[in-house]
Design a protein around this nucleic acid. Structure first.
Lengths: 205, 205
DNA sequence: CTTTATTGACTACGACTGTTGTCAATCCTA
DNA sequence: TAGGATTGACAACAGTCGTAGTCAATAAAG
């Protein structure tokens, strides 16, 4: 049965192709109309597939969104790892990674929405992002000081993520009027110093 | 004409009452179904008013949302100012304010969504929040160091806002498993040290 | 009582949604 | 060629949406 073909391809291959078509269509819709533009019918319409094929790969919209997020995240991770692979100290690495990320989100509205904005309004993506967060953070921060508890580390990562999301989204919205270099520089410094919040107990003003 | 009454009240008064009914209905819908639950028809249904009265006070959904945001923000600001009005140093003030804010958002899901989550998915609210941000931040941070540029101050405020949003939303979602005291403590330290990022030029690791 | 303003309950337009089923046409294998 | 799998194009159900107009009933003032 699995060897049977249609148009020269197996059913498994056709399913994989259709699945990818749906992911691409969803990302395209995000870019055009934001997350609200991603409905089952809209995605199928854009992919030129009937709704039957949606349910071939995804139980519901949420499952599709998570798959889109995973795919875009994986691409972003590759870009970050490549940008950070320049050797040098923590600051140089952080700067390269942040600059690469700023370029990615400025240049690609759809991916920006998926990576930064969507997790803020889609609970499933927020959870997924939280799961993947340590991986992204580790690119630029290396090892946390041993004195930090797991909780401090967790809070630090979430705080950094929130801060970056806020800054980047404000920057592209025009709510933050600074140059790109200043933004990158600030983010780098923030990333590097983030552990200081947690690593210095008993701070007084 | 303005003195003419209906049921003992003037037209202006009735308009004000209906407007408030719509605001209350919107907040109630937020609590039940998130921002997606707030449509013109749903709000009017909940307020038991016909759609005509929606357009009496608001041009569209966005204008209603901004009004809801403004009202909830004003209430939150009062709560923060009262909590912070305890005298003492910056840390004590910050702690009181953060603890009060955490209590507010944990106890009131609708207000939490309006204050923290909605600005992340509704552009008009993001802009409004950016405008009001300096006011909230000033409660707990007093004056920024004179050495900071306006840009650094702006970025610092946005970073802090994003960090707090991220931490609080993760906390109430169960994505961040720490105690409330640990969260408050971390946020206070972060708030107090946020200016250090900007105030120390040329940080090296 | 007459006139005007206000209210409440619809209708209309032109779409949209998620999910599932039906049926005819096409393709493939034996 | 026959049988079964696959495809493509719908229809169906039961709703939803934003915006504006219509009309009868009610209220108020002179």
């Amino acid at each position: 049965m699995s060897g049977r073909t249609w148009g020269g391809t197996t059913l498994a291959d056709r399913k994989a192709v259709r699945r990818q078509q749906l992911l691409i269509a969803a990302l395209e819709l995000v870019g055009e109309a934001g997350m609200a533009g991603v409905s089952v019918r809209a995605v199928c319409r854009t992919a030129k597939l009937t709704e039957r094929y949606f349910y071939e790969s995804f139980a519901d919209r949420e499952e599709l969104l998570v798959a889109v997020f995973d795919q875009v995240s994986a691409e972003a991770a590759v870009a970050l790892f490549e940008a950070a692979d320049i050797g040098g100290g923590t600051e140089a690495v952080a700067k390269a990674a942040v600059a690469a990320f700023v370029e990615l989100i400025v240049d690609d509205p759809a991916r920006r929405i998926v990576l930064l904005a969507a997790p803020l309004s889609e609970p499933a993506l927020a959870r997924r992002q939280t799961e993947l967060l340590p991986r992204f953070i580790s690119v630029v921060q290396g090892q946390a000081p041993g004195s930090m508890s797991a909780q401090e580390r967790e809070m630090g990562a979430l705080a950094v993520l929130g801060a970056l999301q806020s800054l980047f989204l404000a920057y592209v919205d025009g709510r933050l009027t600074v140059g790109r270099d200043a933004l990158v520089s600030y983010c780098v410094r923030m990333l590097i110093s983030a552990y200081r919040v947690g690593s210095r107990m008993g701070i007084t003003d």
